[in-house]
Design a protein around this nucleic acid. Structure first.
Lengths: 204, 204
DNA sequence: TATATTCTCTATCAAGTGATAGATTTATGA
DNA sequence: TCATAAATCTATCACTTGATAGAGAATATA
């Protein structure tokens, strides 16, 4: 018995999971198919039994990643009524559970993938990140808890992007610090983001 | 006369200038030495007459880029007294003149360059981006125009990072739109950023 | 003019890349 | 038990990568 033989679907899942971590950490170009295979403890051609090519792996990673994020955010939102608390929970959750470097992901989508896939990916992305936040802001707007975006010459979606940019660009913490501190830090950051977004820096 | 022969220093400058645009647009890994050479209309080995290796080119790009940014920001700041106007001008300038994707740059620094250079680069980066903004915020704090950061359990530097993250993550505009619209858009965005940073979304 | 230096070139290397062909092993089920 | 299908392998291809050796041409210097 020279081959460790897994269930097919199991190997496929493994590939997606391992690739996700590698792609999100290092970026599309820096992750070779051999790197993926080694991390999965399989040989490189085996990848091609499950996926047509490298890009197809990345697409599957994106699809599952964004779908999961959407489900989690929808969950978070449905659990909180209050605007400020809801924004805080969204920020907190994204800071903790989302790929370290969302900008990396955007870059890869823009520069490394075939153009034909962009429309589809943008829809996934919108459903995962933009729509949930915009929904919350819109509700707050209707309740008069935030000003109408037109006062700022902007839109609800732009404001969502703005919050998202705060979150996604936040630098990864020192990996030497323990897990518990990571959560503490995320909480402080999330509190800061929501505070400033709602009330600003100027004294009242 | 088969060789177009330039002044040495001229060729070197050309390499840095061309590489800057490529690196900032596509990222370190996606830019090959041949791509650089072709864009400079020289052959690839010629690059190695001026630089030890690819990394040295990138380092020189970073050094000049960050130094220039520092000088420009210092200039902008010295020209404006008022806090809000100063923050607006900083945002406006960065939106217009800074590499489209600063996150890309951070990724490359973190993942593609030898660790020994990071300390030095971080100092350049700090002098170019962080210090100028922090100086402005600190002044505003001393004049009572913004709250003391400790009220938010944060620091001036963190607040600077926050503003910077807003700016740096901002998506590039549609390349089909004319130049004049780009400036208009940058102005609106800069106004939005400073407004929210200072006053927040909540009604007074 | 003659020599040295600078600049640019052609040719080439070793390593790594994504991808394919086809053999080999393991499990399934009639 | 034996044929079939699924999973994994070895071997290899064509291409790109960063980098080097060394020749040739343009310029500077003496």
């Amino acid at each position: 018995m020279r081959h460790k033989r897994r269930d097919g679907i199991e190997t496929r899942h493994l590939i997606v999971k391992v690739s996700r971590d590698l792609f999100m950490e290092l970026g599309y170009r820096a992750v070779s198919t051999r790197k993926i295979a080694t991390a999965c403890q399989i040989t490189q051609p085996t990848l091609y039994h499950y996926f047509e090519n490298k890009e197809a792996i990345y697409l599957e990673v994106l699809r599952t990643e964004l779908l999961e994020t959407k489900n989690q955010l929808d969950q978070v939102i449905s659990n909180h009524e209050d605007l400020e608390e809801c924004l805080f929970q969204i920020s907190y959750h994204l800071l903790l559970h989302v790929p370290k470097d969302l900008s990396q992901m955007e870059h890869d989508i823009r520069h490394e993938l075939a153009e034909q896939h962009r429309g589809m990916i943008f829809q996934w992305w919108q459903a995962a990140y933009l729509t949930p936040i915009s929904t919350v802001l819109e509700k707050g707007m209707n309740k008069g808890e935030i000003r109408h975006p037109s006062e700022y010459h902007t839109t609800v979606d732009s404001l969502s992007m703005l919050l998202l940019n705060l979150i996604k660009a936040y630098p990864p913490s020192d990996p030497s610090s323990p897990e518990i501190q990571i959560e503490k830090r995320a909480e402080e950051q999330a509190r800061l983001f929501t505070n400033i977004l709602l009330y600003g820096l100027a004294p009242k």
